[in-house]
Design a protein around this nucleic acid. Sequence first.
DNA 1: ACACGCATACATACATGAATGTAAATGCCA
DNA 2: TGGCATTTACATTCATGTATGTATGCGTGT
Lengths: 207, 207
Amino acid sequence: MPRRTKAEAEATREALLDAAEDVFLEKGVSRTSLEHIARHAGMTRGAVYWHFKNKADLFHAMLDRVKMPLQQIIDDITAERQASGPLNTLRLATLHAFEMLERPRSCRVHTILMHRCEFISDINPVELQNRLASDCREVVRRCFQQAHDEGLLIDEIAPDVATLMLHSMIGGLVHDWLRAPDSFSLRESGGEAIDSLFQLITRSARS
Amino acid sequence: MPRRTKAEAEATREALLDAAEDVFLEKGVSRTSLEHIARHAGMTRGAVYWHFKNKADLFHAMLDRVKMPLQQIIDDITAERQASGPLNTLRLATLHAFEMLERPRSCRVHTILMHRCEFISDINPVELQNRLASDCREVVRRCFQQAHDEGLLIDEIAPDVATLMLHSMIGGLVHDWLRAPDSFSLRESGGEAIDSLFQLITRSARS
DNA sequence: ACACGCATACATACATGAATGTAAATGCCA
DNA sequence: TGGCATTTACATTCATGTATGTATGCGTGT
């Protein structure tokens, strides 16, 4: 029974993307065929090829439904640069990214990106994440530099080192948590670790 | 021209594994066929099927030629628990793992593991890394606990939090560096970040 | 209000290519 | 000469892309 209403067509498109998330998460991207996805959504491959050009197109459509955590951090930092100082801006942006990641769809999609796929067509997530990481590091670095200039950072830590510490901690926490979300709480334990880092490198807190 | 001497047969086995590293690294595991690997080594698929049962078997043989960095850290910690205190043991073990990772073969294989493969047969690297991460965290935690009991750790940081901080920093640094080895030096910049962390959480250094 | 026509939203069928596993053939060393 | 290392050839499976079929929603004219 083809040709539903326009709203129903959009619903099946979303259903196909939902199914893609499920199957990608379970079997990995390269091992799932479009047939798998279609059947999991209760349809056939024809529906997939109607809504999407091919597997890569579907994959990118799936990515478009979520926001990259590093992009979120970049946006948060550049948006509210006043707040209560650069260090607090960094800390809050990080915690905000953690909150976003705990949303089910975000969690699934980013787990797929980090642990369930290697390449997709010619645009691979490694390069994508690479650019994002580079941009994010630069924004964070400028923030730490500003904190340093305002005397908020302790002398023992150079802005570049603080940048690497924060950036690697974020990446490591996200990576580990997405691999095993039940092993610890990203918001609680992860947030605690981030808070501790900022407590350690903030001058006023240690005198 | 088949049937060289036994030593030459072993050499072709190694050549096949070398080729596998190259091609996996370039195209990703799922997108490389055994034909690709064989041709890159100057042979045919038959040679591959003689030395290895299938792709998964070859993959695991490739893994067996290197040591997991987290396993290295575990071994280092459990081996030389005397050294100059638990904190220094942790620090040196981490830096040692970084050194190991900069060896070409280690670098290639672990890049493949982190960024070029999703699943391989029924044994997937995610589960493998998961167990390792869990074990390593436990060993590190015990080490931090000992440091805490000996009064080496500052009061602001609980052993569990220190564990998560160190573990996530290691994971993040390795992850980022393997994705873009030219963006920074793991030994230098990464080591500096690790050193700074230990400097921040060590009591004697701040009074 | 109702029939008409067309574009839409799928399902089905088919052709192609690629990767796999295996069996047979072949040469080389001991 | 016989078993080892490797190639070649073949059958099978599987995913893809495309082409075609088809029924329905929806706008249009009257």
